[in-house]
């Protein structure tokens, strides 16, 4: 299952860059997760259909071109329909091209499996990635800015009047890394098969 035991982020440690960078708020995190899932699924499908015609020596270039084309389409779509979010995501949409999850799944799965299985594999890995993004996004936005999807949770609960303050560190870069470490810790604690020696 790419959901838990083979989660692309926490177990295979792929695609970490974007996972940490876009999760300061929930909304960009969800948009990013959806874009990556779409790109992984479609590129898996395309490469799987082409897999008998690609010469092995230049396969990396072919894969890069397929992925880059899909990412350009995603980027343009985001700019057209969700301009604010696309501004927030800045360079990280373009960086889906070099996201290791995409290349990793193409190399490891789509080159050797049929189109339908590859599509499902892409979906599974995309969802595994999305799961981690949503967890990090919820925690960081809730504690860092006291909101959730832009909705002022802490204010509505009247926490500020009780002397509650937002923890600004949660939206900063280092806290993303530490939270990620904690998520990995939790997961490996409950599943000892994943522990490193």
């Amino acid at each position: 299952m790419p959901w838990s035991r083979q989660n692309p982020v926490t177990v295979q440690v792929l695609g970490v860059c974007s996972c940490l960078a876009v999760t300061a708020q929930l909304k960009p995190a969800v948009v990013m997760a959806a874009s990556v899932t779409a790109v992984v699924m479609l590129s898996n499908l395309v490469i799987s259909l082409l897999r008998h015609t690609i010469p092995p020596r230049i396969r990396i270039i072919v894969q890069l071109v397929v992925v880059a084309t899909l990412v350009v389409v995603t980027d343009q779509l985001l700019k057209a329909y969700a301009y604010d979010v696309s501004r927030q995501l800045s360079v990280y949409v373009g960086l889906i091209i070099t996201n290791c999850i995409v290349m990793g799944r193409l190399e490891a799965f789509a080159m050797t499996h049929g189109p339908w299985e590859s599509l499902l594999d892409g979906l599974g890995n995309g969802l595994g990635y999305a799961f981690i993004l949503v967890v990090l996004g919820v925690v960081r936005e809730l504690f860092g800015s006291g909101t959730l999807w832009g909705f002022p949770v802490a204010e509505r609960l009247g926490l500020y009047r009780l002397g509650y303050e937002n923890n600004g560190l949660f939206v900063m870069a280092p806290m993303a890394l530490i939270l990620m470490g904690l998520v990995i810790w939790l997961q490996r604690n409950s599943d000892s098969g994943l522990q490193e020696k």
Binding site: V13, M172, A173, P174, M175, A176, L177, I178, M180, G181, L182, I184, W185, R188, N189, S192, Q195, E196, K197
Partner: peptide
């Protein structure tokens, strides 16, 4: 701790280094 070995602890240390760089 066994569950933190390898990747987990590397993330946390990187976070601490990041704080220093801030």
């Amino acid at each position: 701790p066994a569950a933190l070995r390898g990747v987990g602890v590397t993330f946390i240390i990187t976070g601490l280094m990041g704080m220093a760089f801030m």
